[in-house]
């Protein structure tokens, strides 16, 4: 069902599926083209279901790809290009949500779960230890054990 639906949803959108960047769009400078690809992979195609503009053939995605390349040609750094796109389309365009008050729980949530679990285990361990479950036998108990074993 998941992929099925992923495919279904993708299919309902106005596009076909092959990866997007067309030869005409590519920049002559290979290093700059590489940067453009990198940036594009982190920008969401706004009319698609969970696709980056690098993957989408939607016309809007193409416009954005061209925009990214235009900014790079104009001498922007990667950060400046991303800021420019975010200023235009909002944070929604970023596939990696920036850390902020509204995303704090998102970013530290997984670590919190892990630490809470680890802490719980540590507590459990200590409780067992203090209840005498984890320690070995003391001298008196050891003597008692040997006495019982001898009797057999």
């Amino acid at each position: 069902m998941p992929h099925l639906l992923a495919i279904l949803l993708l299919a309902l959108l106005p596009m076909t599926s092959a990866r997007a960047v067309t030869p005409q769009e590519r920049l002559p400078d290979a290093a700059m083209e590489q940067r453009a690809r990198q940036i594009s992979a982190g920008l969401r195609c706004l009319v698609c279901q969970n696709q980056s503009i690098d993957d989408s053939e939607a016309p809007l995605a193409r416009d954005l790809r061209v925009l990214v390349r235009d900014r790079l040609k104009a001498g922007d750094s990667n950060g400046q290009v991303i800021d420019f796109v975010v200023a235009r389309y909002g944070e929604y365009v970023l596939l990696k949500p920036p850390f902020g008050l509204h995303t704090a729980l998102l970013w530290i949530g997984p670590a919190l779960i892990f630490m809470a679990g680890a802490f719980g285990l540590w507590r459990l361990r200590r409780r067992q230890a203090s209840a005498g479950l984890g320690r070995g036998l003391d001298d008196a108990e050891q003597a008692e054990l040997e006495r019982i074993l001898e009797k057999r």
């Binding site: 969401r44 944070e91 970023l94 596939l95 949500p97 509204h102 995303t103 998102l106």
Partner: peptide, 26 residues
């Protein structure tokens, strides 16, 4: 838990505050 948060957080955030964010592969 990480997958759970990443999948549902944007829905919850939009439902509660109306703010739209994308949570993608990065």
């Amino acid at each position: 838990g990480a997958v759970f948060i990443g999948t549902l957080y944007p829905l919850a955030l939009e439902g509660l505050t109306g703010a739209k964010i994308s949570v993608g592969p990065p």
